[in-house]
């Protein structure tokens, strides 16, 4: 049976791995170059038996000016998870679409497009709304999106709700002299 370490070694030899982190014996994260991601995913799916795509997610590293995209795959033969990570530029955020590899990828890419503003050219229905209908402005999951400012600009606050300073409030109501 192929082990997860063998699979990672194969990927290292064929495609090259920028970084590797062994989180648990059954969970390894590898970082590969952006242009290698689709080849790595196809190789893992077809040859290393990582047939199940668990999820796709992104992290906004605002301070470094890039997004991390993570593809998490699962192997049912040896029950291990392998995370394939890549970094893309935050300014020109686009990534190659992997919708031809698994049926659910298009949904994940639609969500990432909406929440992070990462474009996946060629992905079916990628420009359709997923959870947010009629959203304008910067995508909400980006770090520079200010939730407090958004709610102050969008919603009317009910009048008569005063905020008390806890120290003074306690003194006035609970610890009267």
């Amino acid at each position: 049976m192929k082990t997860i370490l063998n699979s990672v070694k194969n990927i290292e030899q064929i495609f090259g791995v920028l970084a590797k982190k062994i989180q648990r014996p059954d969970l390894i994260f590898i970082t590969v170059e952006k242009k290698q991601v689709l080849s790595v995913l196809s190789h893992l799916r077809d040859i290393e038996e990582y047939t199940h795509l668990v999820m796709i997610t992104a992290i906004d590293y605002l301070e470094q000016g890039k997004f991390q995209i993570l593809y998490l795959l699962h192997n049912y033969k040896n029950n291990t998870d392998l995370g394939v990570k890549t970094f893309i530029s935050r300014e020109d955020a686009h990534m190659y679409s992997a919708h031809h590899l698994w049926g659910q990828v298009a949904t994940y890419q639609r969500e990432l497009h909406e929440m992070f503003g990462i474009d996946f050219p060629g992905s079916p229905r990628v420009n359709e709304n997923f959870a947010l209908e009629g959203w304008e402005g910067i995508p909400p999951m980006r770090r520079d999106f200010d939730t407090l400012r958004y709610s102050q600009e969008t919603y009317n606050f009910r009048k008569g709700r005063a905020t008390n300073d806890p120290k003074k409030y306690m003194k006035k109501n609970l610890h009267k002299e």
Binding site: I59, L70, L72
Partner: peptide, 25 residues
Amino acid sequence: YVATDGSGFPRKVTVRGPSYTHAVS
């Protein structure tokens, strides 16, 4: 999926719900 960056807050939490694939695609 939980990622931390050394601060007092989680950097990113992603939930993989099974309905995500079952109910959409």
